Computed example of a mutant assay.
Amino acid sequence: MRLGIDWGGTKIEIIALDDDGRELHRERVATPRDDYAGCIEAVAGLVEQAEASTGQTGTVGFGIPGSISPATGLVKNANSTWMNGKPLDKDLEKRLGRPVRIQNDANCLAVSEATDGAAAGCHFVHAIIIGTGCGSGIAIDGKALRGANGIAGEWGAIPVPWLKPEEFPGPSNWLGHPGAIDHWCSGTGFQADYRSRGGTALKGHEIMELKRAGDPLAAATYEAYASRLARAMAMAANLMDPDCFVLGGGMSNVDELYEDLPKLMAPYIMSDHYEVPIRKAKHGDSSGVRGAAWLWG
């Protein structure tokens, strides 16, 4: 049995999978925010419940909104900031009494979809989360690509390429970098751009409903968003040339993107022919936690 845990800023979720990927158990609890020790205990409780429910002992994989630094062995770049600077893997291994495997949550999305999801059978998968934030992960032959310094797939920190004059320099992201992908290509950035154009505070699906009804402000916001995401993905295509892109997060439910992105990417692709599928994550919100379980593949 494989246990996967998705440790997010608002909830911690566990799933138990058998060898065929069949779900045996699932549970979630609220994340004890700003309480590192409390989070460790919440995880231990979830593992105990899962194993009591199934009558089995499992391997444990974690998806976290950051990564373990190979230089220090401590968590870095986590937007759940209370885990930064902590030896998370060692603390979890001590509390659970077994080895654990930890990857960035976007890498877990990539692993999940490459294993038995929308990109099953693809050699090189670039998975992109377009939700509250915007990050990406890479799976090669179903295994997460961590990189020499644990930052492979940190695509969101890069500015949107081929900026238009009216876009420069762009709003700052959480690190203070202007025009970054993780702001402009996120669902949060989509909503913020709509407000900056004079719109009210609406959720992404509400803006899309207005766009479909012919509202010009919503349409202009969507067109700008799709263009920026397409340019960012074209850069990834030129750099890595993956076999498949997979989109997850709330904005992945915007069906128009799957028709519009290939056309919008085309002018920026350095090839006379480019045809790579862009697919919605098959497992949706479950992809991260499933991918954490599949870290023990």
Rank of each mutant, 00 (worst) to 15 (best):
A144N: 02
G66K: 09
P65Y: 11
R290T: 03
W184Y: 13
E256P: 02
S271F: 05
A37I: 12
K90D: 15
G38V: 08
V125Q: 05
E113T: 01
V254E: 09
A44R: 12
A213Q: 10
E13F: 04
L261G: 00
E223Y: 04
E275T: 07
G176I: 14
M270A: 15
I269T: 11
Q56Y: 06
H177R: 15
L24F: 04
P99R: 12
T57E: 09
I5S: 07
C39W: 09
S186N: 05
S252L: 00
G121D: 06
I269V: 15
M265S: 03
L202W: 10
C244P: 07
A292K: 02
A226P: 04
R228V: 10
S112D: 02
G85D: 15
G176F: 10
R146P: 05
A148E: 11
A192H: 03
G288K: 03
K143C: 03
D255A: 00
N253C: 01
A127W: 00
A110E: 00
V276N: 00
E48A: 14
A120P: 07
A237N: 08
R101C: 00
T57A: 12
A127S: 00
G21I: 06
R28H: 09
V160A: 03
N79C: 09
L217G: 13
H123T: 12
R146H: 08
G147M: 04
G153D: 01
G142R: 04
G288A: 09
L247N: 00
C185V: 00
S80P: 05
M1R: 04
G199D: 03
R28M: 08
L96Y: 12
L257R: 05
I140S: 13
F190H: 05
D243I: 10
E51W: 07
L3V: 03
W184H: 14
I140Q: 09
A152D: 04
A234H: 08
S80E: 14
M1W: 09
S196F: 03
G156K: 14
I151V: 09
M265I: 05
A139V: 08
S227F: 06
D34Q: 12
V75T: 15
I181Y: 15
I40A: 12
M83V: 14
A213R: 02
G179Y: 15
Y258R: 01
W7P: 01
M265W: 02
A44W: 07
Y194E: 02
W174Q: 11
N173G: 07
R195D: 08
A220G: 08
D35W: 10
Y274A: 00
F245H: 01
A42S: 13
V43G: 05
P99G: 14
Q191H: 01
W174T: 13
K164T: 07
G137S: 04
P178W: 10
E256W: 07
V254G: 01
A220K: 05
I12P: 12
G133Q: 08
P161R: 15
T221G: 11
A152V: 03
A114F: 04
S69I: 14
G187M: 02
A30I: 07
H183W: 08
H25P: 05
N77M: 13
G249I: 00
I40L: 15
Q103M: 09
E23Y: 09
R33D: 08
L96E: 07
L17W: 06
